[in-house]
């Protein structure tokens, strides 16, 4: 079995309303160093071993887990126990 972590975020240039709200809130709390906040999704997948496992995970992202019109994603193979 293989484990994958997937991070989905908005593409550059796509306005992220929750991120913008967190950004303002942090600035209001006095964190003047804040330049930008992006809020995305974190997904954990457990996948049975098989040929082209990573390729198939990528396909899952393109098809369902992310919308390529507005989002991009990063896949990370993960060894540690969840």
């Amino acid at each position: 079995m293989a484990r994958y972590e997937i991070f989905v975020t908005y593409k550059k240039g796509i306005f992220d309303p929750p991120g913008a709200t967190a950004e303002r809130a942090l600035a209001n709390l006095g964190y003047d160093e804040i330049e930008s906040v992006k809020i995305g999704k974190y997904i954990q997948l457990e996948v049975a071993d098989g040929p082209d496992a990573l390729g198939r995970v990528r396909e899952m992202c393109d098809k369902l887990l992310a919308n390529p019109v507005i989002e991009e994603y990063r896949i990370q193979a993960d060894e540690k126990d969840w």
């Binding site: 796509i14 306005f15 992220d16 309303p17 929750p18 709200t21 019109v69 507005i70």
Partner: peptide, 9 residues
């Protein structure tokens, strides 16, 4: 296109 969360949340 796509539909995102309302700007004002």
């Amino acid at each position: 296109g796509a539909l995102l969360r309302n700007r004002g949340l």
